[in-house]
Design a protein around this nucleic acid. Structure first.
Lengths: 188, 188
DNA sequence: CAAATCATGTAATGTGTTACATGATTCG
DNA sequence: CGAATCATGTAACACATTACATGATTTG
């Protein structure tokens, strides 16, 4: 996959400039791109060269010319084909798991503190997503089914964090139980 | 984070060559690196230049010289400091969610088929991880607490897939219900 | 006889980020 | 008066992957 498909996706709704797209990516809590210029502007040039988008240049005084891109029939076909293509598995890059892998060098207290900090961060993130969901997060809402899909995407992110939270809390308890068992052994 | 920390982690167990590390990364189901040469060999040179690892060169006939790297006291300190550093949130890159975002152009049948394929892939992946867990997946097992941590890491991956599976199945049902509601509306 | 193992390394390419550059206008 | 908005684009850098390159030895 690449950002090019997501750009085609946005353009399938309405014509947009690079600047518009940049903002859409930056604001979206679900799309995995920051919305940096370099990627978007070069991708648009490529898509244009391949005939997947068309371009209308609007001259302005005292400003760079606006370049409004629209999806072409070819672009729509490419988007559709990509949407139908066999899904990839989610790629998860969890730094914390790598930290945990070598966390046995820490004291019980340090390890518990590390887990507590992780739980806190997950908690904050979950709250933020829940608020965004309640605010409607700039939903497009074109058909009832599309609304259902976008809700499901939001739900996916939130449930991911909830699952991670449950896991982290359970691990904290396991480790606490482990310490207690050790102390009980010491006493005898 | 970078692969450099994971390399220090492995070297904190025992001295290793670049080739050994390459295999460890390639075999690990939890570490998010493929184990390609370029990264590992250049990282080792950097770590050596920074004094975090030491090197013993063993000449061989008819083979490149073996370079066995060991972690230094400085390296151990750096590893410990990194393990104690504030955890990052997991970075999830789920292509399928992006496909779903623009899947409203599909027919109900195409959409259901797409979801079915996603469910299948998740299912296969979960089974593979469960088998690896049962086989012990080359666990290091140095202390009981470390065993607990490595088990928790495995459990994290598996529960992630289970959560994703539950979400996907629920969405399939929702969509089926949506189609039925639509058909019921048609009839009137 | 082909392939895997051992063991090092480099080159090319893809993908993504931050920062730099320009310059008028509007908002707090 | 500084910051944000509009609107384009480039440069430098970080991280990761595949493929290329060498060459003996062992295994199926």
């Amino acid at each position: 996959m690449s950002i090019r498909h997501a750009i085609l996706g946005f353009l399938s709704w309405t014509p947009l400039t690079g600047y518009d797209l940049k903002k859409l990516f930056a604001e979206s809590p679900t799309l995995p791109w920051s919305g940096n210029n370099n990627q978007i502007y070069t991708a648009l040039v490529e898509l244009y060269d391949e005939g997947l988008v068309s371009k209308e240049v609007q001259q302005q005084q005292d400003r760079p010319p606006r370049k409004v891109y629209s999806i072409t029939a070819q672009g729509r076909a490419a988007l559709r084909q990509w949407v139908l293509s066999t899904p990839e598995l989610p790629q998860i890059r969890n730094t914390f798991l790598v930290q945990l892998a070598w966390a046995d060098q820490l004291t019980d207290g340090e390890l518990d503190d590390l887990l507590a900090r992780y739980v806190d961060e997950l908690h904050v993130q979950r709250l933020m997503l829940q608020e965004q969901r309640q605010r409607g997060y700039a939903a497009p809402a074109r058909t009832p089914r599309e609304t259902l899909l976008w809700d499901a995407i939001m739900e996916n992110r939130i449930s991911g964090y909830e699952n991670e939270l449950a896991w982290a809390r359970k691990l904290r308890e396991s480790l606490a139980g482990h310490v207690m068992a050790f102390l009980a052994g010491e006493e005898q």
